[in-house]
Design a protein around this nucleic acid. Structure first.
Lengths: 347, 347
DNA sequence: CTCAAAATGAGTTGCGTACCTCAAAACACC
DNA sequence: GGTGTTTTGAGGTACGCAACTCATTTTGAG
């Protein structure tokens, strides 16, 4: 059975002949140019559909001749996850260059809405597409909508602004990620009752808040025997997280699980090992880095919930390119999964 | 910081001018054609490297003008995982057609080495690339090597033949998948001791054997308190698996976990629910289908370990294309992960 | 039927590369 | 110096499409 029949490759000329029109008319139909009668449009489109004709992308790209420019607006600072995304973008440079695409990184304080909005406003007109790690704020939403209105394709990355008219979101469902963490905690601690601690960067971060929401949802509905301690805020900082967790462990000898919503995993792990309780406590955190990989292999960390930064980088570029070319997006391919990583399925 | 500087796009002509040679010479160097003095070759290559020049893929593809044919040799029969791969190949038809690529499915009894080898031999010369779900057998290995020698690019899919000279393997490490299953069983059953049952399609299948090996490895080294029952062979058949498991559950009231290595998950689930023990027994199986999804949501199935069939289909095509074009392969992108799927992180 | 507007045909150019031919130049050897 | 060989240059054609111009035909309104 052949998925794709091997037929002589059709060209626009063939379509024109079969539809009984000229090349120019086919071109007008194909690019929604005016000056074609509705029934002629229909006849051409039917011929295209009947023959399952798709313009040769290589020829189209070559003829269009334009290089495309994309901008990636990323947070300043040393967030390892963001740095991984940037690194993977760098690895694509040969791929990009062979397609006459350019990607420029623009580092901004994405946590200050006015700064972020101002950054976005400056991009208007200069780029064919923009990927942005966005804060959900009215000013940012307006800036995104302005870009869209100016004809720029916009995708949100890692963190979404659903209320804007962005064309696409590349990232995970953080509520589902939190629910996954909750289910894992509940299942891994076994039958015994006890206390569960949660530490996040800040409740003000949308992704952290959503994860906490999902986590609490599952704990309340399915593992009510477990006692959830009040949320700690470690500000994604190793030292601060370590101190907070150390104190907490001293105070509660009956903690059986720990969920770190954001960064600062190294600090939490240090507190755990210094208390000598890394084997008894089920520890779940986010993201795969050299450090979390080590902690998983050691057994200090039980599960890392992660999203694949390389996949996100490539998906964002591909989606922007498809949008710019008015091609359909392979949604199944660009969908980012919530990865559950344990010691034995590390990539 | 710009990942990719926005420079005027270079062309072959620019390279020729900068290296002080003609277009023809650059072309000879680029395609390893003879008749160029070694130091001229070096000079041109240095110019290319210095400018990080990559030939425009669209122009190259158009100029080359050849349509490329790929063949996918897949098992006959109703294996749902293979059918999903075939379905995803079908979904790519527009993408393929726009690139003048064709993919043909060839269904063969891949479990009969001589039939598979004969099938592969018939392909020689007709295709630019072949993806094959291969049995690891000397005859098959020889057939693969013959294809490679004839200049055809070969990737093994889902199941590898490491001893052959195939160019690439697209699939997971099944030993690691088995280890992952073992670790999950050990962690999810909690502290209590009890019996663990394993059912596979057949020990003769390489992927099943590897999963069992990995599973036993982890059980022996880390969860020796658990008692592993002798392996059952369900032949990937629902009815047979149901009967075997029903009988087993009757005989052993102290079974606390069940690992299904292959297909037949529906039969196993039926036996579990009819015995009324689906909530007490930790049940782990492979692959995500409509049925395993339903079982996960119901709570009958605790974890599905899977490989993403859409990703495998696309990765196989992309790898074949890169090989045919003599382009580098983005290994991180084409690497297939072992997915741990639970109720809350279903895609 | 007339005339302007709309629709269509016919044609051109250029995108960057692959692949080819043929002539000219450089070189090696004696 | 002449010979033959290797290396290089110059140029052309083709690939399929986008984007454009301009002439011609068709259409519909009056």
């Amino acid at each position: 059975m052949a998925v794709e029949t091997v037929s002589a490759a059709l060209t626009l000329k063939d379509i024109a002949r079969e539809a009984g029109v000229s090349l120019a008319t086919v071109d007008r139909v194909l690019h929604n140019r005016p000056g074609v009668r509705p029934d002629t449009v229909r006849r051409v489109q039917e011929t295209i559909a009947r023959n399952a004709f798709h313009p040769h992308v290589a020829a189209a790209e070559l003829a269009r001749g334009r290089a495309r420019r994309f901008a990636f607006v990323m947070p300043t600072g040393a967030n390892p996850f963001m740095q991984q995304i940037e690194a993977y973008l760098g690895e694509m440079s040969a791929w990009l260059s062979a397609r006459r695409l350019s990607v420029e990184l623009i580092n901004t304080d994405v946590f200050d809405p006015s700064v972020l909005a101002a950054s976005l406003e400056t991009l208007s007109g200069d780029y064919d597409g923009v990927a942005v790690v966005a804060l959900d704020h009215p000013g940012v939403r307006a800036a995104i909508n302005d870009l869209v209105d100016a004809g720029t394709k916009v995708v949100t990355l890692v963190s979404d602004v659903p209320s804007s008219r962005r064309h696409h979101y590349v990232g995970i469902d953080n509520i589902a990620a939190g629910r996954t963490a909750g289910a894992l905690v509940g299942r891994l601690v076994g039958e015994k009752p006890g206390k569960v601690a949660i530490i996040a960067g800040s409740q003000g971060l949308r992704d952290h808040a959503e994860r906490i929401f999902g986590f609490n949802q599952v704990m309340a509905s399915e593992f009510s025997r477990l006692d959830i301690l009040p949320l700690l805020e470690g500000r994604d900082d190793d030292d601060r997280s370590e101190q907070l967790i150390s104190r907490l462990l001293d105070k509660h000898p009956d903690i059986i699980s720990l969920y770190n919503v954001g960064a600062g995993t190294q600090g939490v792990a240090k507190a755990l090992t210094e208390a000598g309780r890394e084997k008894q406590i089920v520890f779940i955190a986010h993201d795969l880095t050299a450090m979390t990989r080590r902690l998983l292999l050691q057994g200090t960390l039980d599960v890392a919930i992660s999203q694949n930064p390389g996949h996100e980088a490539r998906a964002a570029v591909r989606v922007l390119l498809s949008l710019a070319r008015n091609e359909p997006i392979l949604s199944e391919q660009e969908n980012i999964r919530i990865d559950i990583l344990m010691r034995d399925n590390l990539p």
